[in-house]
């Protein structure tokens, strides 16, 4: 077997891992879209905000310290304590629940019944707002996030697979963090599916997703369900934020993963959780392979647009995406 062949397999494996991370972000989109018809552009910024909050809480940073210092001329920065990772994650989840409540109470309650595109633009506004608030609260410098996840190459896999190739092949290189992320994503999806299938709240959530009016008439509180859904999306954002943040640091570019998740959604369909997973994997593998095979011919950095063009091509033939519900239009 030529080494190139194994490199291609390695590229595919790494693409799968990257795809899992895309799916993680896309999941948050699908949750909100299914339950409320809102296409939440702010999902990426929510991941950034959650990661920033987590780092801030763990380091005992004073919220809005920079702002206070600038206005009142004080010099406060830290409370001077360290919070253990697990407890900080719990606190951050709490913050995301409060955020979900505020979003529902102050924004989307006033926009009920508006066109989807208006709601979409409102979430773009929300993304800007949240990014500004996050920067004001915790500062905009690049932070490192360390919640004790393993980092670096997995030597075990490298050693176990080294025998496959010839002399110039040293086994598959896979980041341990990616493996952990894949595991977390699988658990998260299983939990979400179980939640929506077997619990009362989960069933109510699916009912709302199916038909708002019918759900209202059997006594389901739309308000409660929407807060629940936004909280869930906030939690998914936190998980995504932890994974991406541990991988490449907590900084502004983290919010751009939303832009990576959009083509995943278009490909998989906005309404399908399996679609988000499969779409993420296809795009993850597709863009790595494309960069590996075609990238060198056209100058590289094709991953910026490949996912979009692929999704666009799929949409032209299947406007609802691969797994989405059929779009039926009535006059």
């Amino acid at each position: 077997m030529p080494a190139d062949f194994y490199f291609a397999i390695e590229v595919i494996l790494n693409g799968l891992m990257a795809g899992v991370l895309y799916s993680l972000v896309a999941l948050g989109f699908v949750l909100i879209f299914k339950a409320s018809g809102i296409f939440n552009y702010a999902q990426g910024v929510m991941a950034l905000f959650a990661a920033m909050t987590l780092v801030g809480i763990m380091n005992g940073q004073v919220p809005f310290a920079h702002l206070f210092n600038a206005i009142f001329g004080t010099e406060i920065h830290y409370f001077g304590w360290q919070v253990p990772a697990l407890f900080a994650i719990l606190l951050t989840t709490l913050v995301m629940v409060v955020f979900a409540w505020a979003v529902q109470r102050y924004i989307f309650r006033h926009l009920v019944g508006q066109e989807p595109i208006i709601l979409f633009m409102a979430t773009i506004g929300l993304a800007y707002f949240l990014e500004g608030v996050g920067d004001l609260m915790w500062g905009s410098d690049i932070k490192t996030l360390d919640v004790g996840l393993p980092q670096g190459a997995s030597f075990w896999i490298e050693e176990q697979t080294a025998f496959l190739g010839g002399e110039d092949f040293f086994g598959f290189f896979i980041d341990q963090l990616d493996i952990v992320a894949a595991g977390v994503a699988i658990v998260l999806v299983a939990v979400l599916v179980a939640f929506s299938q077997y619990t009362k709240q989960g069933r109510a959530m699916r009912a709302v997703a199916d038909d708002h009016q019918a759900a209202l008439s059997v006594g389901i509180s739309l308000n409660y369900i929407w807060i629940l859904v936004w909280s869930l999306a906030g939690f998914v954002a936190l998980v995504a934020g932890i994974m991406w943040g541990a991988k490449s640091g907590v900084q502004f570019s983290l919010s751009l993963i939303a832009l990576k998740a959009l083509p995943v959604l278009m490909l998989g369909g906005f309404t399908s959780i399996p679609g988000a997973i499969v779409g993420g994997l296809i795009i993850g593998v597709g863009e790595q392979l494309f960069e590996f095979l075609v990238g060198p011919l056209v100058g590289g950095a094709t991953e910026n647009w490949f996912a979009y063009v692929l999704a666009l091509l799929v949409l032209v033939f299947r406007p609802q995406g691969l797994f989405g519900e059929r779009i039926i239009e009535r006059v």
């Binding site: 920079h66 600038a70 409102a122 773009i124 506004g125 929300l126 800007y128 707002f129 500004g132 004001l136």
Partner: peptide
Amino acid sequence: TDIVAHIQLVIVGGLIILFLI
């Protein structure tokens, strides 16, 4: 200046939402 830039983000985002509502 960086704080003013962040405040600007908050104001622009807030205004967008306010106008839409």
